[in-house]
């Protein structure tokens, strides 16, 4: 199978999250990913875009979020780019679910969820752009 790239750009508002999920789900389904894997991809991408909106762009609703779904024979990758505040993964501490519930905090689970649902999650910043690159391998497709 050749490499196929599908792109979508949306403004940085939560009102577009459903469109982003539908976009990712459509291409993952077309690439014959299992329904459970499609759900996991949708959620990982939703969490990433929500973090971009709330943290990178701090609620500014008209900045661009560029999403690319890259389908290869053994994997599906999603690349999400923004031009907001960079995320420093080294400063991130994995949340403890029970502790979070007890302290009555909500949110803060996005990166944890992305890492649990995807096989690889990488962050990088180059110039003014931040990029999150996530990979999900096909079942049995990982070497």
């Amino acid at each position: 199978m050749s490499r196929r790239i599908h792109t979508l750009t949306v403004p940085s508002s939560t009102r577009y999250l459903e469109e982003v999920r539908d976009f990712v789900a459509r291409h993952a389904s077309d690439a014959a990913f299992e329904p459970d894997a499609v759900e996991q991809l949708k959620m990982a991408v939703d969490e990433c875009c929500t973090n971009v909106i709330e943290h990178a762009y701090r609620g500014e609703s008209e900045r661009p979020i560029d999403i690319a779904v890259i389908v290869e024979s053994d994997r599906l990758a999603v690349r999400i780019r923004d031009e907001g505040q960079a995320f420093d993964p080294s400063s991130y501490r994995e949340p403890d679910l029970v502790q979070f519930a007890r302290t009555r905090k909500s949110g803060g689970f996005g990166v944890h969820i992305m890492r649990r649902l995807m096989d690889e999650v990488r962050f990088r910043t180059y110039g003014r752009k931040n990029e999150c690159y996530m990979v999900k391998y096909r079942e049995g497709g990982r070497a």
Partner: peptide
Amino acid sequence: AYISSAGLGVFMAFIEE
């Protein structure tokens, strides 16, 4: 049909109380 951590966070914010 779908729930993200933002939805789960609402439950978490209230459940202890």
